[in-house]
């Protein structure tokens, strides 16, 4: 029961893209095409879960015993960058079709603030290991849901040229804002 609550709250009430507005750069550029957006969303979910698990281990088993909590930013960033690099090489070598579907996004994710954000939230919430992994997986799914929704909305947008002067990114940012307002409606669900 507890896990379901964590996942639902990560997806709906505290959606990483729509309530914290993290990971906006790929959210706006990649959502241009729906199928590409799905690949990116899966890659983000995957990396978010793995890096949160790795960062939990480093934080609680290395940094805290050594009293080096203040190094968390540096260590998390290096950890994420390294994991993404190795994952990319690994997937490219052993699972070429998978690499083709979403591996190409991995280098883009290295500097995605949503990934780092989740690891830092995890520390703030001081959850145990399993809960942290479930929470970051849920956050990834939440980001995936947000970018798929945005991709689908932008597919509609092609046929109705609203406010050409805003440009593509401008109208996307406005839609993201409206979506965020919509997500406020989930408050109190969990």
């Amino acid at each position: 029961m507890n896990f379901i609550v964590i996942i639902l709250s990560a997806i709906l009430t505290s959606n990483i893209a729509l309530t914290f507005f993290l990971g906006m750069c790929p959210f706006i550029t990649i959502s241009k095409k729906l199928d590409v957006a799905i690949g990116m969303g899966i890659a983000v979910t995957f990396v978010m879960t793995i890096t949160a698990a790795a960062n939990w281990i480093v934080y609680y088993l290395v940094l805290i015993p050594l009293g080096l909590e203040y190094l968390q930013f540096l260590v998390f960033i290096i950890n994420i960058a390294a994991i993404v690099q190795i994952l990319e090489i690994f997937i490219d070598h052993y699972f070429p079709p998978l690499y083709h579907a979403f591996g190409i996004f991995l280098p883009l994710i290295t500097v995605n603030c949503a990934i780092l954000g989740i690891s830092l939230f995890m520390v703030l919430r001081s959850q145990p290991f399993i809960e942290s992994v479930v929470f970051s997986f849920g956050s990834g799914i939440g980001w995936l849901l947000a970018i798929i929704t945005m991709g689908a909305l932008r597919k509609k947008l092609i046929f109705s040229k609203p406010l050409a002067d805003f440009g593509d990114a401008g109208i996307t940012a406005i839609i993201a804002g409206v979506m965020a307002l919509g997500f406020i409606g989930f408050t109190g669900v969990v």
Binding site: I78, N79, A82, Q85, I86, I89, F90, D92, H93, Y94
Partner: peptide
């Protein structure tokens, strides 16, 4: 971390 990446790169890439 750098060693890990170098090894992975040499072996798999």
């Amino acid at each position: 971390v750098s060693l890990l990446i170098i090894v992975a790169d040499k072996v798999m890439s």
